[in-house]
């Protein structure tokens, strides 16, 4: 099964394609079941590389145009080589990427031309958690703040509504704000 349909570009998002996919998948829930995969390998120290390539969706194997590899590491502050973003920072990167992609799609669907979209993110972490100093402190972020600065051909209320809708439809926003069952095994 493939989904190919006409393109219609305002912000460079192929919204017609997305809407067509939505229509097709509405009538075929099994085709909507995707499984994403990533392969990770320790390099040295705190450094790892993780690659995404193949995934499953639309009832069959799919692949990215090419494999994408991300390097993660810890900062030199903690004696590491700082060869890449920290894993929690990658979560911030994922959130920003997801929300911004959503903003572009929704704006285009609503006929709003975006001129520039920038975001600054801050996330707070109490290191007493991951360092095992205080068991009452969680490991992860205690709060994430995202500030969008958007120049668009629309009034402020519309821009705010686009940003709100992007959060409602964001996978990473959901992953971060809601619990997910995680199983980790040694094979």
């Amino acid at each position: 099964m493939t989904i190919t349909e006409p393109t219609n570009q305002l912000n460079g998002v192929d919204v017609e394609h997305l809407l067509h996919a939505r229509e097709v998948l509405t009538g075929a829930p099994p085709a909507a079941q995707f499984t994403f995969r990533a392969a990770s390998e320790w390099v040295d120290g705190n450094q790892a590389t993780t690659t995404v390539d193949r995934f499953f969706g639309l009832g069959e194997e799919q692949a990215h145009a090419r494999p994408h590899t991300v390097v993660s590491d810890h900062p030199s502050l903690f004696g590491a080589t700082d060869a890449g973003a920290t894993p929690p920072e990658l979560a911030m990167i994922a959130l920003a990427g997801c929300l911004t992609a959503g903003i572009a799609s929704i704006a285009q669907n609503w006929g709003v031309k975006l001129n520039s979209v920038t975001a600054n993110l801050e996330a707070d972490m109490d290191m007493q958690g991951i360092l095992g100093i205080d068991p009452d402190v969680r490991n992860g972020f205690s709060a994430i703040r995202v500030a969008y600065d958007i120049d668009a051909d629309a009034d402020d209320a519309t821009v705010e509504a686009i940003v709100a809708q992007s959060q409602k439809r964001s996978a990473v926003f959901d992953i971060i704000t809601n619990p997910t069952a995680v199983s980790v095994e040694v094979v």
Binding site: A164, K168, D174, T177, N178
Partner: peptide, 8 residues
Amino acid sequence: QISGSLAN
């Protein structure tokens, strides 16, 4: 477990 999405 309470969702962190309330602000939105």
